[in-house]
Simulated assay, not measured.
Amino acid sequence: MVNRNLRQFPAVVVGRLSSQTIAVRWSDPRSGYYGEQTWRASQSRKHAVCTATGRAIRRGDTVFKPTSQGSMQPFNRGEMILASGVLYDETSSE
């Protein structure tokens, strides 16, 4: 039996690439599967909802946002992942 009250989030954090970047796998039924993207740490400029957890994001929170590939803007450029929700092993090497 499927619990229809559980929301599926399109972003899954795959791993930490550096102190400022994470790898994210994106899959959304409306826009499709886009494999892994690199997301970079930034400060939120607006209130939003974390695309990986559904938690509230406030202006000024540290978040991760998709990076651009040259002049190509990612389709999900307005999405954010709350940095405090990203778990990683701080003892691992970069």
Score class of each variant (00 low, 15 high):
14 V>N: 11
45 R>H: 04
40 R>F: 01
24 V>L: 05
58 R>Y: 10
53 T>D: 06
4 R>L: 04
38 T>P: 08
68 S>C: 13
54 G>H: 07
74 P>E: 01
53 T>G: 06
83 A>V: 01
55 R>Y: 05
87 L>I: 02
58 R>L: 14
9 F>N: 10
56 A>S: 14
9 F>W: 07
39 W>K: 12
57 I>E: 10
16 R>Y: 11
46 K>Y: 08
52 A>V: 00
71 S>Y: 03
90 E>W: 02
77 R>S: 02
87 L>Q: 08
73 Q>S: 11
73 Q>G: 13
93 S>Q: 11
35 G>R: 01
82 L>Q: 08
87 L>P: 06
23 A>H: 14
40 R>M: 04
13 V>A: 11
48 A>T: 01
45 R>Y: 06
3 N>R: 07
33 Y>W: 10
10 P>A: 07
62 T>Q: 12
67 T>N: 12
59 R>A: 08
45 R>I: 00
46 K>C: 07
8 Q>M: 07
39 W>I: 01
54 G>V: 01
16 R>E: 09
91 T>D: 05
61 D>P: 15
42 S>C: 08
23 A>W: 08
22 I>C: 15
58 R>P: 13
11 A>R: 05
28 D>S: 05
28 D>V: 00
25 R>F: 09
37 Q>Y: 00
10 P>C: 04
59 R>G: 06
49 V>H: 10
4 R>T: 03
38 T>M: 07
60 G>R: 09
62 T>M: 13
20 Q>D: 15
16 R>T: 09
51 T>H: 06
94 E>G: 04
56 A>Q: 15
50 C>S: 05
26 W>K: 09
58 R>F: 10
53 T>I: 00
58 R>D: 15
25 R>Y: 08
73 Q>T: 03
38 T>K: 14
76 N>A: 01
9 F>G: 09
85 G>V: 00
36 E>R: 13
78 G>P: 11
33 Y>T: 08
62 T>S: 14
15 G>A: 05
63 V>I: 15
17 L>P: 15
57 I>D: 10
14 V>H: 14
7 R>F: 02
22 I>V: 14
68 S>I: 03
74 P>F: 00
68 S>V: 06
53 T>V: 01
33 Y>D: 13
21 T>C: 15
31 S>F: 02
47 H>Q: 12
6 L>Q: 14
72 M>Q: 11
57 I>N: 11
69 Q>I: 03
15 G>K: 11
55 R>I: 02
30 R>Q: 11
89 D>R: 08
34 Y>A: 13
7 R>Q: 10
36 E>P: 09
65 K>C: 07
81 I>R: 05
12 V>S: 15
14 V>I: 02
53 T>A: 09
